[in-house]
């Protein structure tokens, strides 16, 4: 527990140290948000849809604000695995899965909070039709917040599995690029999942990728009614539990293998 806390503290210090880079990232993300808002506005003026434009724009801003959460960017750790420096970590008296889980969580949480807060404030201040809309209701906001926490837990479990795979292949860049691609498409970052063909959506929203940001955003905008909230949260929790279990199993096997190889 203490070890996990110090991981969080270290990460926070690191993130605040690279404020300059974070600022550049925020400006860039805001710019992307503006471009996408403009695009969907133009598309909607040509052919209005059942789903309100305001929801799509809110979707865009929230996706941009929490972009950092999706990004697998722990290059540090990946390098460690590639160069074999991970052997040091394997010697530490810690439950390995938990240690990395905390590490990934710290990075995603601190990194995205630092960016999301200013971005959401900015997006909320934009004039109507451009900015982020208010939540459907207070309970909807609370449900969305709970779903975001579950989404974060889920994405950490996913990244941990990726990492476990990375340890087994020597050059994981190809596989990683594909996983990143699945992430940007199926999580709704490239194109809001709400704009996918309706028949596809029924399938896609069941996948783990949709649990990360899509589910919380839909709860926020009221796309998912409050009555559906327990069901949504349950699906998220189910995926999270399943992915954590799978990750634990993989790490255990990896550890055994590493011990056998003798480092």
């Amino acid at each position: 527990m203490r070890a996990c806390l110090s991981v969080f503290r270290l990460r926070l210090r690191l993130e605040t140290q690279y404020r300059g880079a974070a600022l550049g990232g925020i400006v860039c993300q805001i710019f992307f948000g503006l471009i996408l808002s403009a695009l969907y506005r133009a598309l909607y003026f040509g052919k209005p849809q059942v789903r309100p434009l305001a929801h799509v724009i809110t979707y865009v801003w929230l996706q941009q604000a929490f972009f950092r959460m999706l990004l697998s960017s722990d290059g540090d750790l990946m390098d460690k695995i590639r160069t074999g420096g991970i052997a040091y970590d394997l010697c530490r008296p810690l439950p390995l899965y938990g240690f990395y889980y905390a590490r990934i969580m710290a990075q995603k949480l601190m990194g995205s909070l630092l960016r999301a807060v200013p971005m959401i404030i900015f997006a909320a201040l934009l004039p109507g039709g451009w900015g982020m809309g208010a939540p459907a209701s207070l309970p909807a906001l609370l449900a969305a917040a709970a779903a975001l926490v579950l989404g974060l837990s889920c994405v950490c479990a996913m990244e941990n599995i990726t990492m476990a795979f990375t340890m087994r292949t020597l050059d994981p860049r190809g596989i990683q690029a594909m996983l990143n691609l699945l992430m940007t498409i199926l999580s709704g970052n490239l194109l809001p999942l709400t704009l996918f063909p309706d028949s596809w959506q029924r399938m896609i929203t069941l996948l783990p990728y949709a649990q990360l940001l899509d589910a919380p955003i839909r709860l926020y905008t009221g796309e998912y009614a409050l009555g559906q909230a327990p069901q949504v949260l349950l699906l998220q929790a189910g995926w999270t539990a399943a992915l954590i279990a799978a990750g634990c199993w993989l790490w255990k096997r990896n550890q055994k293998r590493l011990v056998l190889q003798g480092g």
């Binding site: 695009l39 040509g46 052919k47 849809q49 860049r173 190809g174 594909m178 691609l181 498409i185 704009l195």
Partner: peptide, 27 residues
Amino acid sequence: LQTLAQLIMEGGELLAVILLVDRFDHL
């Protein structure tokens, strides 16, 4: 593998345009 990943990545970008065209028909 990396070339393949690039192919799929840009394919994904194109897919986004196709899906938009499918829904909105014109811009």
